Simulated assay, not measured.
Amino acid sequence: MLPRTLVKILRMIDPKPLVFVAALLAAVGLVAGYIEVHEQADRTLALRQGPPPKAALQNFNMLTHVGPADEVFVQAEADFSRATVLTLRGINPVERAVVVPLFGLSDRGEAQIHSREAGAGALTAQVARRTGVQEDVERPAIGLMFYPIDVGDTRVPDAAHLVDAVFGPGTRGTVVEINGLHVDPGDFTLMADGAFSVMGVELSADNLAVRPFAGERLAILGAAPSSETHRALFLTAMALVAISALVSIARGRLEEAEAEPAVEDDQGPEGPTAAHPKFAPLPSQREIIEAERARESEPAEPHWALIAARATLRGTLAVVQMLGAGLAAGIAGLARHFRSRLARREDEAL
């Protein structure tokens, strides 16, 4: 006979929803696996064909200036004096990142780049011609350089060393070239907006966030994408199927045991008391004491039953946590994938 606690747990758990959730997780895992394979193919293609064409930040177009694996190569003016280290708390693990506001190239900034390409001899004359032009120095930042750093790393990298090339001073900052990935910083964008507002810099709502390679393009693009998302989804689905199967078997046996009719004892005492149980003699004091002692001497419900019940509850909670984490990771991956594709289609429509 199953312990009462375990019987209650079996009656509380319905295996049918578990199977449905397992199927849903498996489907999300298949989609997540497809996205990971697609990302790996994009990275391989990006390594083979090289970086995308360079583009001034103010002229950036998602359709023509984004290469495979969301790689970008932008020219902008970076205000390194307002580089800030942000810490995103409230999550596990805590995340940190260096953020720098990026502005579109001014006339002076474009002159810096053109003079470098033309040669050092043309630098002085070309820059001097554009230095006296009055430009809008209050324009908002339309880009964000975003570089994640380890929480335990006490050394904060110099933001100026994260770019690919430095040309010289522009109107709003240093003229730089940045090769990296187009990313979505998430909550860091709101934090950066608040931090820059205190410094008197406005961050445009449709800013371009770039995660610089910092000289590690081959290592970053060559690294295999993480397969933990779809693996966790499949493992969770398998665990749910196993739990639903065990619960179904246990509930079936429980129902069979409850359906069996009780065997009556027909070997009772003979006489009027057997024919008329209501006239059965009252037990004596001695019989009551002996029955009480016998009941006390009976072994209590096995301790292993309580342990099994607790283990079942912990396992159920663990599965629920894995389910939540797997769904969150899968949905986040799908959102990033389709958001990138949607942005490209919007630029194509425009």
Rank of each mutant, 00 (worst) to 15 (best):
I149H: 02
D150M: 15
V151K: 11
G152Y: 07
T154E: 05
R155G: 08
V156Y: 01
V156I: 15
V156T: 13
D158G: 10
A159T: 03
A159C: 08
A160S: 08
A160L: 12
H161G: 08
H161F: 09
L162T: 04
V163D: 02
D164V: 02
A165Q: 07
A165R: 10
V166G: 01
G168E: 03
P169H: 05
R172Y: 00
R172S: 08
R172K: 13
R172T: 13
G173S: 09
G173T: 02
G173R: 04
T174P: 03
V175S: 06
V176S: 03
V176M: 09
V176H: 02
V176K: 05
E177C: 02
E177A: 12
I178P: 03
N179S: 09
N179F: 03
N179R: 13
N179Q: 12
G180A: 14
L181A: 10
L181H: 05
L181M: 12
L181G: 01
H182V: 03
V183C: 10
D184Y: 11
P185Y: 07
P185L: 09
P185T: 10
G186M: 07
G186N: 05
D187E: 07
D187I: 14
F188I: 15
L190F: 11
A192H: 02
A192M: 10
A192W: 04
D193E: 14
G194T: 08
G194S: 10
A195C: 11
A195H: 03
F196H: 02
F196C: 03
F196A: 00
M199N: 11
M199F: 06
M199L: 14
G200E: 00
G200V: 13
V201L: 11
E202V: 15
E202L: 15
E202F: 12
S204N: 14
S204I: 10
D206K: 15
L208H: 04
L208W: 05
R211T: 00
R211N: 00
P212Y: 05
F213Q: 07
A214I: 00
A214T: 00
G215C: 02
R217F: 00
L218K: 15
L221F: 09
G222F: 14
G222W: 11
A224M: 15
A224W: 14
P225N: 10
S226H: 08
S226W: 10
T229V: 14
T229N: 11
T229Q: 08
T229L: 11
H230G: 07
H230P: 08
L233A: 02
F234Q: 07
L235N: 05
L235E: 03
A237V: 08
A237H: 00
M238F: 13
M238Q: 05
A239R: 04
A239I: 04
A242Q: 05
I243V: 14
